[in-house]
Simulated assay, not measured.
Amino acid sequence: MPWHKPIKIDGGDELVIFMHGLWRSYRSMGPVVQAVTKAGYSTLNIPYPSFKESLEELVGRLHKTVEQERGNYSKIHFVTHSLGGVIIRNYLNSYEHSESSRVVMLAPPLQGSRIVDWLQRARLNFVLGPAGTFLSTESMVREIASFPEHIEIGVIMGNRVRIPFLHRIIDDESDGIVRVETGMAEGLKEFKVIHADHTLITLHQDVLEDVPKFLRTGSF
């Protein structure tokens, strides 16, 4: 919402920027932020209008934030959920970033979403805003599929479906929204699958342990 502001906690000389998913808020990243803060990092949990702006506009927002913080910390890392991972990938392929940075993506639809495809066929994609266009499998095929070699990327996908109807639409191993295989991309350092659904993966105990570990060591 317009009145939501970034929440910043200073705790170390390395900053971790958090980006939530589509139709979510910065509050959904709260448990992961807390875990990373306890691990000794400064954190910046940023809200953004995920359902109102184009991918290019969202990437531009992120770039502006990074530029504002760049001189204040020795390193800037990222932790994302869902759509946030797509934004980060486009940002990393559009702007130069530190070679020592690490990124953890939770349930990123890097190859698009069949749920979005279904909503388009049902003429319901308007509920997603611009994301209803650029998150389709057809649109994501046209995006750069890889990551820069000098950035260490770890992806955690879920494979729990709470709503059987969604499983019939996706018809593959998924978290109810995103297929497990859509989290794969060239240039990943680590890839892990846990028994979590798309919405609640940010609360999963494995995530709360693995995210700080990857930021610290580069592995899960």
Score class of each variant (00 low, 15 high):
residue 1 M to Y: 07
residue 3 W to K: 13
residue 10 D to K: 13
residue 11 G to I: 08
residue 16 V to H: 11
residue 20 H to Q: 13
residue 24 R to G: 09
residue 25 S to L: 13
residue 28 S to A: 10
residue 29 M to H: 09
residue 36 V to S: 04
residue 36 V to G: 07
residue 36 V to K: 13
residue 38 K to V: 05
residue 39 A to V: 06
residue 40 G to H: 11
residue 42 S to F: 09
residue 45 N to H: 05
residue 48 Y to N: 10
residue 50 S to A: 13
residue 50 S to T: 15
residue 51 F to A: 15
residue 51 F to R: 10
residue 54 S to A: 06
residue 58 L to D: 08
residue 59 V to Q: 00
residue 62 L to E: 00
residue 64 K to A: 01
residue 71 G to A: 08
residue 75 K to G: 00
residue 76 I to S: 00
residue 82 S to T: 02
residue 85 G to E: 02
residue 88 I to C: 06
residue 92 L to Y: 00
residue 95 Y to M: 05
residue 96 E to Y: 00
residue 97 H to I: 04
residue 100 S to V: 03
residue 101 S to D: 02
residue 101 S to T: 08
residue 105 M to N: 10
residue 105 M to W: 11
residue 107 A to S: 13
residue 107 A to R: 04
residue 112 G to I: 04
residue 113 S to Q: 09
residue 113 S to G: 10
residue 113 S to N: 00
residue 115 I to W: 02
residue 117 D to R: 05
residue 118 W to M: 08
residue 129 G to Y: 01
residue 130 P to V: 06
residue 132 G to R: 01
residue 135 L to C: 09
residue 139 S to A: 15
residue 140 M to I: 02
residue 143 E to L: 14
residue 144 I to T: 08
residue 146 S to H: 15
residue 146 S to E: 14
residue 147 F to M: 11
residue 151 I to P: 02
residue 160 R to Y: 11
residue 171 D to N: 15
residue 174 S to H: 04
residue 174 S to G: 12
residue 175 D to H: 05
residue 178 V to W: 05
residue 185 A to H: 04
residue 188 L to R: 12
residue 191 F to Q: 05
residue 191 F to S: 12
residue 191 F to W: 07
residue 193 V to I: 12
residue 195 H to Y: 12
residue 197 D to V: 01
residue 199 T to W: 06
residue 202 T to I: 15
residue 202 T to R: 06
residue 203 L to A: 09
residue 207 V to Q: 06
residue 208 L to W: 11
residue 208 L to E: 10
residue 210 D to A: 12
residue 216 R to K: 15
residue 220 F to K: 01
residue 220 F to G: 01
residue 220 F to I: 03
